[in-house]
Amino acid sequence: MIPNPLQTPHSGYHWDGSDQRFFEGWYYRVTLPQLGETIAFMYSIEDPQGGQPHSGGAAQILGPQDGYVWRSLPDVDLFWAECDRLALGHWRTPGLPRHELPPDQFHAHSTEGYQATAHLNQGYLCDPATGFYCRWDYAIAPLYGWGSPRFPQQSTAGWLSQFQIFEPGWQILMAHGLANGWIDWNGQMYFLHQAPAYSEKNWGRAFPREWFWLNCNSFDGEPDLALTAGGGRRQVLTWAESVAMVGIHYRGQFYEFVPWNSRVSWAIDPWGRWVMGAEHWRYRVELVGTTTHTGTLLRAPTLGGMQFCCRDTMRGDVTLRLFEKHWNGHESLLLTATSSTGGLEVGGKPWREVWRSRA
């Protein structure tokens, strides 16, 4: 086991063994800027106690050109995850141990499934109806968790997220890292050499009613820059609230804009355009994401099980502008950055008008 000094809170598995409705999901992504392509791996488990209508796991991949492959992994007894660190796996091969396999033995022993940690992502999926497959194996070197790398890492939703009062919980596991290895996308080989990598997770009893997301760590000419922004309407105990945040890691600094320290506003089209602004006493940020691609429908856990309820593209155009405020009321521009390999998403109950709000 490789230690991870950048391990974030909530990196471990959250299920407490109860029989209440529960899901947990993990998201891993690598980008190949020179090809303009991104490949994202999404793993999930629902009602792991078993014997429930939606008990089971799944793995889905958003591939090159917004391609898509999905497989259910129905046997909850073949899923495992560690409670004290980021480590999980699910396979279709009965008899395999419910813990991490030695990386050099994974492909020899597992006929289908995956295993993932803070430093590794391996797997194989094959659609039996079409024969389309994906096989992957890459190592990850984390550069940023969530927060300044010089201090203990932070909960994305603040210290209250240690209590299960938000539905769902959300944690950025690694805002930026570098991946080395390979991905075989149905015979097309993609070799990763210091490829920008990212990971996050969510967990709880329900997804938010509506949500949006912008993410990029492959900006033009800025290899040490990572952006994650998003918002939604989430459940908080017995009421619902609209929240949003922006987090930027740049040259060793962490710029955080969250509801408890900033004003955050957004205007999100049903699809095609994402606009966010946030500011506090010291900094201000402007974000614009756009796409002309139709995107890909993805499955997400809902009260009714895994359903197509979000749309993603990994070929979004993203512009970021970061300003520093001064005592005399003036501002100076710290950073302007652009990318054509940004991740853009809308999800939940579709909205028909531009969603404008402020938190």
Rank of each mutant, 00 (worst) to 15 (best):
Phe23Met: 03
Gly25His: 01
Gly25Lys: 13
Trp26Ile: 00
Trp26Tyr: 13
Trp26Glu: 08
Tyr27Glu: 02
Tyr27His: 10
Tyr28Thr: 00
Tyr28Asp: 04
Arg29Ile: 00
Arg29Met: 08
Val30Tyr: 02
Thr31Leu: 07
Thr31Asn: 12
Leu32Asp: 11
Leu32Glu: 07
Pro33Ile: 07
Pro33Val: 08
Gln34Met: 02
Leu35Tyr: 06
Leu35Ser: 10
Gly36Ile: 08
Gly36Pro: 05
Glu37Ala: 07
Thr38Asn: 09
Thr38Asp: 09
Ile39Ser: 04
Ile39Met: 15
Ala40His: 00
Met42Ser: 07
Ser44Lys: 02
Ser44Pro: 00
Ile45His: 03
Glu46Cys: 09
Glu46His: 06
Asp47Tyr: 00
Asp47Met: 03
Gln49Ala: 11
Gly50Phe: 01
Gly51Arg: 01
Gly51Ile: 00
Gly51Ser: 01
Pro53Val: 07
Pro53Trp: 00
Gly57Lys: 00
Ala58Val: 03
Ile61His: 02
Ile61Lys: 02
Leu62Met: 10
Gly63Lys: 07
Pro64Arg: 06
Pro64Gly: 01
Gln65Asn: 15
Asp66Lys: 07
Val69Ile: 15
Trp70Glu: 13
Trp70Leu: 13
Trp70Met: 12
Arg71Gln: 14
Leu73Thr: 06
Leu73His: 05
Leu73Pro: 04
Leu73Ile: 12
Pro74Asp: 12
Pro74Lys: 04
Asp75His: 03
Val76Gly: 07
Asp77Glu: 15
Ala81Gln: 09
Ala81Arg: 11
Glu82His: 12
Glu82Leu: 11
Glu82Met: 13
Glu82Gly: 04
Glu82Ala: 15
Cys83Tyr: 03
Asp84Glu: 15
Asp84Gly: 10
Asp84Trp: 03
Arg85Ser: 06
Arg85Lys: 13
Arg85Tyr: 04
Ala87Met: 11
Ala87Pro: 12
Trp91Lys: 01
Trp91Cys: 14
Arg92Lys: 13
Thr93Glu: 12
Pro94Met: 01
Gly95Glu: 10
Leu96Asn: 08
Arg98Cys: 15
Arg98Gln: 15
His99Phe: 10
Glu100Ile: 13
Leu101Gly: 12
Pro103Arg: 12
Asp104Ser: 14
Gln105Trp: 05
His107Val: 09
Ala108Leu: 12
Ser110Val: 15
Thr111Glu: 13
Thr111Ala: 09
Gly113Asp: 08
Gly113Val: 08
Tyr114Cys: 08
Gln115Cys: 07
Gln115Trp: 04
Thr117Trp: 05
Ala118Tyr: 05
Ala118Gly: 14
His119Asn: 13
Leu120Arg: 13
Asn121Arg: 03
Asn121Ala: 12
Asn121Phe: 01
Gly123Tyr: 06
Tyr124Gly: 06
Leu125Trp: 11
Asp127Leu: 01
Asp127Ser: 11
Ala129Ile: 00
Ala129Thr: 01
Gly131Leu: 02
Tyr133Trp: 11
Cys134Arg: 10
Arg135Ser: 14
Arg135Phe: 08
Trp136Leu: 08
Asp137Asn: 14
Asp137Pro: 02
Tyr138Val: 04
Ala141Pro: 00
Ala141His: 08
Ala141Arg: 15
Pro142Tyr: 02
Pro142Gly: 10
Pro142Val: 05
Pro142Glu: 06
Pro142Thr: 03
Leu143Trp: 06
Leu143Ile: 12
Gly145His: 04
Trp146Met: 11
Trp146Val: 10
Pro149Lys: 05
Pro149Tyr: 03
